[in-house]
């Protein structure tokens, strides 16, 4: 198979999900005729018809709200939120209903909410945010974020097939990353992946920061520092065994995400490691992330976001603990 971009892999995944299950519906702003602002839904309306792939009015709250209703009626809705910064108006529906419906009624809602997230694309305000921690904090949701085209395909299939609601974060900075994918390969929710093996320290990343972590590991190799990179893929549930297995080898962990560090998801990872792997640690779990300031104007985003240097700086400190 030809290498495909992550955008194309997601498109293929939606296509196969729509073909495989008539109950799957894809909808959101501009997903129909236009094929989505990132073309993730390109051509789907043409193939599957405007009943199953449709444009909605501009209203995130109700896009998610009707997903609840459609799911109750037996469909598997796959709504799209156009950009990370626009999910907040749907927050009430997601937190109060999507996440809690089963607990309140015994009825499962197999909804997959797709959200492009993260920065590094030089965009204007509200288009580069990393709101994952709001959702990992919400019980009743599963939260995933692929980092590669192959995982994007497989994880989206798993998310749509899952009986519970899944928040599916797509790293838009990686939409045009290419690789060969294998549609047969299952990517279950809740399983992390060792993206690179190493022994000196473990970098834990997800979504857009995985390739950054790999870049850091490549740079470190030149200094004879061996770094292991874990691509979480799934934030909730979190694959602790993969993390702990790595720490048995490295005893040092550096968590990298684009979201601000204070109150970010890295805090949960660090706490879990402290809970389950306290004895393994030879250095405090380091967190590298965005500044604790609002996402800046795009010309400053590279300084705001984690980069190879900041990761290696954290690695240096972890290693200095001996």
């Amino acid at each position: 198979m030809e290498p495909v971009t992550m955008a194309r892999a997601l498109n293929l995944s939606l296509r196969d999900a729509l073909a495989g299950d008539e109950q799957v519906l894809v909808f959101g702003e501009d997903v129909g005729t236009l094929g989505g602002v990132f073309r993730i839904t390109d051509g789907l309306q043409k193939t599957f018809g405007a009943d199953r792939v449709f444009d909605t009015p501009l209203a995130e709250s109700t896009i998610v709200g009707i997903a609840v209703g459609l799911a109750l009626r037996g469909f598997r809705p796959v709504p799209e939120i156009q950009f990370d910064g626009f999910v907040y108006s749907a927050f009430d529906q997601i937190v109060s209903h999507v996440a809690k419906y089963r607990n309140r009624s015994g009825i499962s809602l197999p909804i997959t909410i797709r959200i492009p997230f993260g920065g590094h694309i030089g965009a204007v305000e509200h288009h580069s945010e990393s709101p994952e921690a709001y959702f990992t904090h919400t019980a009743g949701l599963k939260v995933v974020a692929p980092a590669t085209p192959g995982d994007a395909y497989g994880l989206l299939r798993s998310a749509i097939a899952d009986p519970d609601p899944v928040i599916f974060f797509e790293p838009k900075a990686r939409y045009y990353m290419k690789e060969e994918i294998n549609p047969e390969l299952e990517v279950p929710i809740g399983s992390a992946r060792v993206a690179r093996e190493g022994s000196g320290a473990t970098i834990i990343a997800y979504g857009p920061t995985v390739s950054l972590a790999l870049d850091a590991a490549g740079a470190a190799e030149k200094e004879n520092i061996s770094l292991e990179v874990i691509d979480l893929r799934s934030l909730s549930p979190l694959d602790m065994p993969t993390i702990l297995t790595s720490l048995q080898k490295t005893h040092r962990a550096v968590v990298v995400h684009e979201a601000p560090v204070f109150g970010g998801f890295g805090g949960e990872i660090a706490a879990r490691i402290s809970d389950d792997g306290f004895d393994l640690l030879e250095a405090p779990v380091a967190r590298v992330g965005g500044m604790d300031a609002p996402y800046p104007p795009s010309r400053y985003e590279k300084l705001y976001l984690p980069d190879v240097d900041r990761i290696l700086e954290a690695v240096d400190i972890a290693l200095a603990y001996g």
């Binding site: 694309i121 838009k172 045009y176």
Partner: peptide, 10 residues
């Protein structure tokens, strides 16, 4: 991978 992504950083 996109735009002036991380690879073009310092």
């Amino acid at each position: 991978l996109v735009g002036y992504g991380p690879g073009a950083g310092p």
